[in-house]
Design a protein around this nucleic acid. Sequence first.
DNA 1: TATTGTTATACTCTATAACTATA
DNA 2: TATAGTTATAGAGTATAACAATA
Lengths: 160, 160
Amino acid sequence: MAAPTSASSAASAAPPSAAQELDTSYLETLVGYNTRRATLAIVEVFMDRMAAYGLSIVDFSVLSLVGHNPGATSRQLCATLGILPPNLVGIIASLDKRGLIDRRPHPTDGRALGLHLTDGGLALLRQAEATAASLEDDATRNLGPAERATLIRLLQKIYR
Amino acid sequence: MAAPTSASSAASAAPPSAAQELDTSYLETLVGYNTRRATLAIVEVFMDRMAAYGLSIVDFSVLSLVGHNPGATSRQLCATLGILPPNLVGIIASLDKRGLIDRRPHPTDGRALGLHLTDGGLALLRQAEATAASLEDDATRNLGPAERATLIRLLQKIYR
DNA sequence: TATTGTTATACTCTATAACTATA
DNA sequence: TATAGTTATAGAGTATAACAATA
């Protein structure tokens, strides 16, 4: 959480006044504090670079899930990403309007719509996923490959 | 992100319809996706249990930092927690109004106010920190002590 | 009767601009 | 002139209730 949030990060690498840093040793003993700080550090880089494609983090997640799960429904995306249905409507509508995804009648359920990438959506996803891989390497540059694998394994032990 | 967000988590351990789970294997290769999912899992438990003290996560962080850094200023809290000054004003005012913290004139800087815990604030912090320790143990129950230490070390390599 | 997708809406969180008083 | 704390305000993100169409 302490990471300067975009505002100050551009101009100043060192803090503007530095004043006096607080002792965070207690908070740093909490796993949740550390996962949150790490998430914010990565998310900041993620948002910066995905802005080039006009994609938010959720946009990227939706586009990627649809790409890897052709015919997925809104309901499935909501369950997977922890988004509530009313909040996904605008996201889907926006990706559809931009011509990145198609909404087709579901083959077996008349209530549902199956989501599919368009050719343009697939092309954008490939670029975005390449950018994501590169950005993740940068954000985790202090981790070796084995450490990165260990980190992911331990994190999944928490949420899976 | 996929974790059911409080709404469904109470009544149903298994998903309501289950429908068909999507393939998330690509997203799970991203460190950011995993840190975010783990954060959401812990945050959910954290919010549930801290509600007993009327503390949000930021309330807890502020109370804890002031407790471990008597005389800290708003500016320092903002820098440490990545909160913007206008968004901290209400939080500080609320903790003050509840009698958990005091705002005293800063000894050397007439513009600033030094923050201190009241006796009541210290008592509440001690309870809250005990609850946090217990809740963290629960949320990371699938990790051994060594794994927990490794996880924290690797996360700090990302954000420090 | 339950579920999918949707609208409307409210609440929280986060962000920017501008003011005051002190330095 | 720069900084600490503050106000007002705008924008995301997230939450609930309720509806039409379909199962």
